[in-house]
Structure formats: C-alpha cells, structure tokens
Simulated scan of single mutants.
Amino acid sequence: MHGPTLVNWLLALLATGAGTSCLVRLRHSPCAPGSGHRPLARESDAAEALMGLGMAAMAVTGATVPPAVWAGLFGLPATAFLLAAAHAPAGRAHRLHHAIGALAMTYMAFTMASTSGHGHHRAAALGLPLLTGVLLLYFAAYTVWTGSRLLRTPAGTLAVGTAGLPQACRLTMGIGMFAMLLTM
C-alpha cells in the first residue's frame, strides 16, 4: 500500500488477527448433521479467513507481489461467489459482499502495480477515482452497519462460536478494507 509503513504494519496485524480468528472458527466448527453449524457459515468463515490473511499480506508486500498472483488469489473466489449468488438465493447478499471484497482486492493489486516505481503522480496512484470512491462508500456503509449489529450483541458474548465474534471480525475487515482503499 502507499501509506506510512507503521500504518501498513498495524493494518497487517489487525487483518491477521481477524483472518486467524476466522480460521479458528472454521477449524472448530464441524459441518456434521446436527452440529448446528450451517454450510453457509463455514463458507463465510473460509472466505473471511482468506480476505483477512490476504489483506495482511497485501498491506505488507503491496506491489512486490505480481498482480496476477493477487488476481488468482482473489479473482477466482470472486467469480465463484458471483456464480453462487446468481444460482442460490440463500446467502446471496453475503456472497455478493465477499465477491465485492475480493474484486476490490484485485482492483487494489492492479492499481498498486500500475503506479509503483514508474514516476506516476500521486493522482495516478488513486486508480479510477469514481470506482475507488464507490468502494470507499460501500465499505464505510458496511462498517457502520456491521458495527451497529455488533452493538446489539448481548454483553459478554464475544467468544469463539458466538454471534459477536464473527461480527467483530467483519467490522475489523470492513475497517481494514476502507483503510487500504484510502491509502491507495
């Protein structure tokens, strides 16, 4: 990313914590019948783990990783989420959110690659201003919405396996995506 090094590392720590938490939830939530854990929740945990850990890696490595790697890492899941959302009404909004996040990560990777080390002006580092603005608005609104849902979680329920922890991870990643887009 184009922000100060300290901000990039703090963002990486925040995203790593959220991604790791999602991995722990994914590993400790059986998908067996009667377990009470829906397959859509496992899909969401996996997608959020990928996004959190991918955000951490992108914040630290930035443009040193070729855009094709980022495109494969995020573009393929984005396509899968878009197709799944088109064919299954259950979880459509959540899948669309994951697709938007993955596409935003791909967009940021290509923007970073096109503006790094080529003597471009700061205005060129913004990518497509309209698209960046729309993504900033989307993730700002998502963060406010997720934060309001977290505030409605009963006190003391931020433990693994409860409704509060996934909401806190989503809030963290929404803030992280907003910060990454802002520092682009």
Rank of each mutant, 00 (worst) to 15 (best):
A18F: 05
A88T: 15
L10S: 12
T153P: 05
A63V: 04
H28K: 10
L83I: 06
P154W: 02
G17I: 03
T111Y: 01
A15L: 03
G101L: 08
C22I: 03
P89H: 14
M108I: 15
G164I: 04
R95M: 10
G101Q: 10
L50Q: 11
L131G: 02
A155Y: 13
A140L: 14
G133R: 06
A85H: 07
Y107T: 08
A68W: 13
P39G: 01
A99Y: 05
L82T: 13
A163Q: 12
G3S: 12
L126S: 03
H120Q: 09
V144T: 10
P154Y: 02
G156A: 11
T157V: 07
E43P: 00
A123R: 02
G75H: 02
V24H: 04
A113I: 03
S114K: 01
S148Y: 14
L83M: 05
A159L: 13
V144M: 08
C31S: 14
D45K: 01
Q167N: 08
A109H: 07
P33S: 05
R170A: 15
G52I: 10
P67I: 03
L151C: 14
S29R: 03
G19N: 06
M108N: 13
F178P: 09
Y142D: 15
T172R: 02
G117Y: 04
A80M: 05
F74Q: 06
S116P: 07
A109T: 09
H98S: 11
L126Y: 00
G161Q: 11
A57N: 07
L10R: 11
L126I: 00
V69I: 15
M55T: 09
P77H: 00
N8C: 13
Y107G: 10
S21E: 10
A90N: 05
G36W: 02
L13G: 15
V7W: 03
G127F: 00
C22G: 10
A124M: 01
H121E: 04
A47M: 09
A46M: 08
G36I: 02
Y142H: 15
L131W: 06
V65Y: 09
A86Y: 09
M55N: 03
V144Y: 09
L40W: 00
F110G: 06
L171R: 08
H118V: 15
M55W: 02
L10V: 12
A141V: 15
P129H: 05
M177H: 11
